[in-house]
Amino acid sequence: MNNWPLWEVFIRSKNGLSHKHVGSLHATDAEMAMENARDVYTRRMEGVSLWVVESKHIAASNPEESGELFEPAQDKVYRHPTFYELPNELKHI
């Protein structure tokens, strides 16, 4: 395959939903990536829209830094509605 670049494939399963990552494939260019994605990932009506993006263009967070990145959110329960104590009889809030 002469080291064809890797592409990531995203599918919108139906209108109203966002595209979701489904897998990857090799292709020489975007057009071929799109055709292959259609053949490989949508044989059973899995989607109404496709995105393909060359894998090298995705910047990913480093798992080793996930502590710094995501842990600060853990002690901020006041960002959730259930943190606030209101009487049960109250409606529509």
Partner: peptide, 9 residues
């Protein structure tokens, strides 16, 4: 086929 695809790209 692969060669042709490369050349085309």
């Amino acid at each position: 086929v692969r060669e042709a695809a490369n050349a085309y790209a």
